[in-house]
Nucleic acid binder design. Structure first.
Length: 1042
RNA sequence: GCGAAAGUGGCGGAAUGGCAGACGCGCCAGACUUAGGAUCUGGUGGGGCAACCCGUGGGGGUUCGAGUCCCCCCUUUCGCACCA
């Protein structure tokens, strides 16, 4: 070898050596080589979905970051678990297989092999002995096992945790629990209408018992309106639908009722929300989960219906029970059962054809159309309800602005205090009645009722009222002091009769002026209402028509007004108290109760696809589901030649085609509790792609375990406090990260894992984007069709027209996709790693620019030459750089300590780009002195090793070491050596730079000030004037004020 | 519409309230080389011969001192979007 840095020889050489030695394999507790005295560090990458296209430059960004951290943590003496695997079931693999005509098990294996090969070229320090894919029998066997654990569990709302179904049966049998369906179940189980018909468990038929038990299961079969995507041939979870299109592929999605496996994730809504306080996650991600879970506190209240068959009351959910006196009409979703009932048995006022048309139109309206047009539409359904507080008869409408899936699918409309209701009321001329006033409107109303007769004449009232509103608002006075405040206003007006005409009015007395400004504000507000005269104003407020007049709803808090009924009055109460009063009254009179709603829906877990985990479930001839025994897992996918979807509106699962697999016997399927010969049909749905990623981080702790999904000791060691660092893309903020938390919590409740949260610290790497070019008409030009004659100037070659450089996602059509293999071939993996880590902050999205790669490459060449030099006389063609000496160089030593400190701190704070720049500074300075200590260059190599593992290992070896640079302890730095012996202090006069001083870093302030004054340029500037004040920022700057 | 983040040289980016632009690219000059550059050295925000002046999206403010803190506005990106 010569003096050249031959990365293409060095990198494969060391990769092979590390693999041979198992250099980064980590023993588990109890295994040889395990050191229990060391702290653990579980560092996890979001494992990739191996696509046929191979690795993208975005993948190694997060992986390099975790690799640096892991190598660093090992040097700091921690036991590091750093695994890698493959998320390989799911739609994309299946669609790729369909396109290529090759079975997904083959294409997926090929894609995995390719991904592994590509990843290994980066020299990542994964423990490859723990590698697995979600499609491995050994793995999905346990995915199915966990499904059964969830299936055989129920949520005890009193204990706030999941419990085994056996304990539920025990409670039911012993009579400790009422023998009725799950009252909190969201699936449409026929709720035993007469709860009084309490029967004993033993009196129920087996069928009845089964129904009750099933209604409690955390995994249940529900008939629900789901998101059906004909193009993909499967239903999708809510989380997989974005703007009415499928998250994968962007195909249209329609609503369709289907019988599906669901997970009762809603039972965990509150804990999924509350436990976000336990984790160290980006605020934005927490917020997205909070929004997705969407908790709202309010009440359910029944409004009696008159004359509707089968339906005596309409139940609504509201977060503003305090506004119930303003509920002037009701709205139900077009899908609501009441609409259906009225279509069957119309009332005299029901316009059946119109109603039928509206419901049909609403059903066919996609989410997308709904979003585009927010025009309020609706139809009166002919029914009337009674507002239980005002006792007034109010009409019931149906409108698609009320969603069937939220709350009860019905609302009480309070147009004065809800924007949507206001728009609807305005469109259909429904009454709008104020029931909440904030302080100023309250003051207005008070004045309207208490004006003196002479004020009511003409327009004098406007000035008095403006003053009164201003005073009551600024003094925040309670209602019972309004009378006194009004007297104050009148007294002041008597003293200062002249009202300022504008805020800028140059009235001398500031008190008058201040009053003037506030006065004008309120005067403007009053005048903008366009009241004809006092009587008009007074009448508007008297009848609660203020917001109708204003033209918009007021949805804030305030005092209840116009809120007295035959049974109860809440007038004057502040919103929070008014809410409580209404709820209390509703509870005591049996028409309602406090209720918390979640936006989160139960998780649709069935897919009608081939390439996924089969459910360990069979159906008997009576249509009952049965679990496959744990000992008979896994349930393997049948071999199928034809797994292409038929694009259709008929959601028939693909596996149904595999008749020989589907039709089996209880004995063959491994179902207990049925005769072995009983004919059963296997469940033909498969699990969604998310299933495998819900628990892979647990399996990594003990991937070869055949007895359990994870060994107890391994779980308790590696997952104590959860995964210590989890790095991956932000796009999984509500999908994978919510699902995995849910599974983890169920396993926690059932005693299978020991922590409530899976991922303690989460970090999102930014997107690697690329440049693209845009014409004046905003159309895009591929990257290779643009010339750059001058910096910052871009010309489209074909037309000669200037184009604009923009940042865009990498895409094939823009020809700006980067293949990591090409970059590694040209520059090596170490350069690639340094380039990507040096681009900028890890969390920021940043554009790839191949032109810049040469920078980090030059840096590595410089490091190479620091150690190795060409020597034709030597047998190998090289020798150590003769500058390397035994004695340390002092200035290099200080810089080295600075460098170690900065790199260490920057790694800890994920600030890799500034760590790299510091090492470049070192490499720029280190060649300057005549010699450099051998241990100095060695310490640099150790510090650089996590970033550039191959070149440092090679140079470490050439320096004569038999061990690995990656096994070295992290070098210590001495704080005193990180500071310079003398510092240059900036001297300012009146904040302007006037000179510099060289002083000791701890020089006394007065000495620095004296020295500063002595400077010629400073003396000239001061010109004998006295120094009024001076500031010293130690070791940085001195500022003299004259 | 609501919410969050971000706007700094030709480009990527740096900067505990204390010399704006570290470091890298590019560019300029020079060196080595038959040559080349994936080599080396030096320079490089703008204006001015210079002293000096101007510069962190725009406008105000706090401060001895603001890219950094506060208020208003503009732009971009990303979420959410009839959730009662």
């Amino acid at each position: 070898m010569t003096d050249e840095y031959r990365f293409s020889e060095i990198e494969p050489k060391w990769q092979a050596a590390w693999e041979k030695d198992g250099a980064f394999n980590t023993p588990n507790p109890g295994q040889p080589g395990f050191d229990a005295s060391r702290q653990k560090f579980y560092c996890l990458d979001m494992f990739p979905y191996p696509s046929g296209a191979g690795l993208h430059v975005g993948h190694p960004e997060g992986y390099t970051a975790t690799d640096i951290i892991c190598r660093y943590k090992r040097m700091r003496g921690l036991n590091v678990l750093h695994p890698m695997g493959w998320d390989a079931f799911g739609l994309p693999a299946e669609q790729y297989a369909i396109r290529t005509g090759v079975h997904p098990s083959i294409t997926t294996r090929e894609a995995i092999d390719n991904f592994r090969r590509q990843l290994q070229r980066f020299g990542f320090s994964y423990d490859w002995s723990r590698e697995f894919g979600t499609i491995d029998d050994d793995y999905y066997r346990w995915t199915q096992w966990i499904f059964l654990r969830i299936y055989n569990a129920w949520y005890d709302t009193n204990a706030r945790r999941a419990r085994p179904i056996a304990e539920l049966i025990d409670e039911l049998q012993s009579g400790r629990r009422l023998a009725c369906g799950n009252p909190d179940g969201s699936e449409p189980v026929r709720r035993d209408s007469g709860e009084q018909q309490q029967r004993r468990w033993s009196e129920l038929s087996e069928l009845e018992q089964r129904k009750i038990i099933d209604s409690y299961r955390l995994a249940y079969v529900g008939e629900q309106t789901v998101n059906w995507c004909p193009k993909l041939g499967t239903a999708l979870a809510n989380e997989e639908v974005i703007d009415g299109k499928s998250e994968r592929g962007g195909f249209p999605v329609f609503r369709k009722p289907m019988r599906q496996w669901m997970f009762r994730i809603t039972a965990y809504g509150e804990r999924l929300l509350d436990d976000l306080t336990l984790v160290d996650w980006p605020e934005s991600t927490k917020k997205r989960q909070i929004d997705w879970i969407g908790r709202s506190d309010g009440a359910e209240i029944d409004f009696p219906l008159s004359g509707v068959a089968d339906c005596s009351a309409l139940r609504v959910f509201t977060t503003r029970p305090d506004t119930i006196f303003g509920a002037t009409y009701m709205v139900v979703a077009p899908e609501h059962a009441l609409v259906e009932a009225l279509l069957k048995h119309p009332l005299p006022d029901t316009d059946v054809p119109r109603l039928r048309d509206y419901v049909a139109a609403a059903r066919n309206r996609s989410d997308l159309e709904r979003k585009e047009s927010r025009e309020k539409t609706g139809v009166f359904i002919g029914a009337y309800a009674t507002n239980p507080f005002t006792k007034q008869r109010i009409p019931v409408w149906t409108a698609d602005y009320v969603l069937a899936g939220y709350g009860t699918g019905a609302i009480m409309a309070v147009p004065a205090h809800d924007e949507r209701d206001f728009e609807f009321a305005a469109a259909f001329d429904l009454p709008i009645r104020d029931v909440v006033y904030p302080r100023p409107v309250l003051a207005m109303r008070y004045y309207a009722e208490n004006a003196q007769p002479e004020e009511a004449e003409g327009s004098a009232w406007i000035d008095v009222m403006a003053d009164f509103m201003g005073l009551t608002v600024t003094s925040d006075c309670p209602l019972d002091q309004f009378a006194g405040q009004l007297r104050v206003v009148r007294a002041r007006r008597a003293e200062h009769p002249q009202t300022p005409q504008s805020p800028a009015d140059p009235a001398p007395a500031t008190a008058v002026n201040r009053r003037g400004s506030i006065h004008m504000t309120w005067r403007d507000a009053i005048e903008s209402m366009n009241f004809v005269d006092f009587a008009d104003m007074a009448a508007t407020l008297h009848h609660g028509g203020y917001y109708a007049r204003l033209g918009r709803a007021y949805s804030g808090n305030g005092h209840a007004v116009n809120s007295s009924g035959p049974d109860i009055s809440i007038d004057g109460l502040l919103t929070e108290f008014a809410k409580n009063a209404v709820i209390k009254h509703a509870e005591t009179s049996g028409i309602g109760a406090a209720r918390t709603q979640f936006k989160l829906r139960d998780w649709l877990f069935s897919r009608q696809r081939y390439w996924g985990e089969p459910f360990p479930i069979v159906w008997d001839e009576r249509g009952h589901h049965h679990a496959v025994a744990e000992s008979c897992l896994p349930v393997r996918l049948p071999e199928m030649a034809d797994y292409a979807p038929e694009e259709s509106d008929d959601p028939r699962p693909l596996l149904a085609k595999a008749a020989a697999w589907v039709n089996t016997t209880a004995g063959d399927a491994g179902v207990r509790g049925l005769p072995a010969g009983a004919a059963v049909r296997r469940e033909t749905n498969t699990m969604p792609g998310w299933a495998g990623s819900c628990w892979y981080y647990i399996r990594f702790a003990d991937p070869k375990n055949n007895e359990r999904f994870v060994g107890r000791a391994a779980e308790q060691y590696w997952l104590r406090d959860g995964v210590d660092l989890y790095i991956g893309g932000e796009e999984h903020a509500v999908l994978h990260l919510l699902y995995a938390r849910f599974w983890h919590k169920v396993l926690f409740d059932l005693g299978e894992v020991s922590t409530p949260e899976p991922f303690r610290k989460l970090f999102h790497q930014g997107l690697i984007t690329s440049f693209a070019y845009q014409r004046a008409d905003r159309s895009l030009v591929p990257m290779d069709e643009v010339d750059t004659p001058r910096d910052g100037e871009f010309i489209e070659r074909a037309t000669g027209q200037p184009v604009r450089q923009i940042i865009a996602k990498m895409s094939k059509s823009l020809k700006n996709v980067i293949n990591p293999d090409d970059i590694i071939a040209s520059y090596g993996a170490d350069t690639f790693r340094l380039y990507e880590m040096g681009m900028g902050p890890l969390e920021a999205s940043k554009p790839w620019n191949t032109r810049d790669i040469i920078g980090p490459h030059r840096f590595l060449q410089r490091v190479w030459r620091l150690v190795v030099t060409q020597d034709e006389d030597s047998p190998d063609g090289w020798r150590l750089n003769p500058r390397i000496a035994q004695a340390r160089n002092d200035s290099v030593e200080r810089l080295l300590h600075k460098t170690i400190k900065k790199v260490q701190n920057d790694i800890e704070s994920f600030s890799f780009h500034t760590a790299i720049s510091q090492m470049i500074v070192f490499s720029n300075e280190a060649p300057k002195p005549d010699s450099i200590g051998r241990d100095q260059i060695e310490r640099l190599l150790v510090v650089l090793a996590p970033f550039a593992p191959h070149i440092t290992e090679e140079l470490w070896q050439r320096l004569g070491h038999a061990d690995s640079v990656h096994a070295q302890p992290w070098p210590a730095y001495d704080e005193t050596l990180t500071r310079d012996a003398t510092v240059e202090v900036l001297v300012q006069v009146n904040g302007k730079k006037r000179g510099h001083l060289l002083v000791a870093p701890d020089a006394a302030d007065h000495d620095v000030i004296d020295a500063a004054q002595a400077l010629e340029a400073v003396a000239k500037e001061i010109a004998g004037r006295p120094i009024k004040k001076s500031f010293v920022a130690k070791g940085r700057l001195v500022n003299l004020i004259v």
